[in-house]
């Protein structure tokens, strides 16, 4: 067996004095899609942020392609091949759609994704390429955020709350495109409030509860009941 793409060992992270992650351990193989579920405040976003370097880790290791990246700043981690689609999209308001995408490709990692391939995935963005990013609808903004992350041709894509604040029909559209994205060999970690949708899209899941892993495995193996118990901690 080849070694996993990402291995997390005893990871602890904190915001100031408030500890958010209490020694997590898991690993992820290339090509897998991992769903990260859990109630509000369980530590899902913190885990994503600590993988990509936005939250400084207290202790533990984050091995990515065999290299410990736990201490690296976020701007170095992206060069290693990890990209985040942040919660709430967070496009740059003073940049146009295309400028947002170009900036996403700033690290110039070689790969499938370029302006052209992004535009063929989301044709609407080509039409709106020169529009200010804030003038787009929520769903279109989410496409820009995904495209911006893909532009760095990541090996690992972190998706935080894709469906937040979007209409159900748009959420459905975006999730239907997800296989096209992961189909290119991209490994993904998916954080989602909508547990059903997350489990449906993933090959593998981890349920977090107050900074601990309460359940993990193949979504098809565990009963819905067991997952609900792990989610609420009853």
């Amino acid at each position: 067996m080849s070694e996993p793409l990402l291995t997390i060992e005893h990871l602890e992270a904190a915001y100031g004095d408030a500890r958010a992650l209490h020694g997590l351990d898991f690993s992820l193989n290339a090509g897998e899609t991992l769903a990260l579920i859990g109630a509000n405040g369980a530590g899902k976003s913190t885990l994503l942020k600590s993988i990509c370097g936005l939250v400084s880790n207290k202790s533990g290791r984050v091995l990515f392609k065999g290299k410990d990246i736990a201490g690296l700043p976020a701007n170095e981690i992206v060069k290693q091949g990890i990209a985040l689609v942040p919660e709430g999209r967070r496009l740059f308001p003073s940049l146009s759609v295309e400028e947002n995408l170009i900036l996403g490709g700033k690290v110039k990692r070689p790969g499938h994704w370029s302006l052209d391939t992004i535009y063929s995935l989301f044709p609407i963005l080509k039409e709106k390429r020169h529009a200010p990013s804030t003038s787009l609808s929520g769903g279109q903004q989410q496409m820009v955020a995904i495209g911006r992350a893909l532009m760095s041709n990541p090996d690992l894509l972190l998706l935080d709350e894709l469906s937040l604040g979007l209409a159900p029909i748009i959420i459905k559209d975006i999730y239907e495109l997800l296989p096209k994205i992961t189909g290119n060999g991209v490994t993904a970690i998916l954080v989602e409030q909508d547990v059903t949708r997350a489990l449906h899209s993933a090959s593998h899941f981890i349920c977090l509860q107050e900074g601990h892993i309460s359940l993990s495995g193949d979504p098809k193996v565990h009963t819905r009941d067991a997952i609900t118990r792990a989610y609420f901690g009853t």
């Binding site: 700043p73 942040p86 967070r90 740059f92 996403g104 911006r148």
Partner: peptide, 10 residues
Amino acid sequence: DDTEVALLMG
């Protein structure tokens, strides 16, 4: 605009 996300862009 957003220092944190700019870091994510490298």
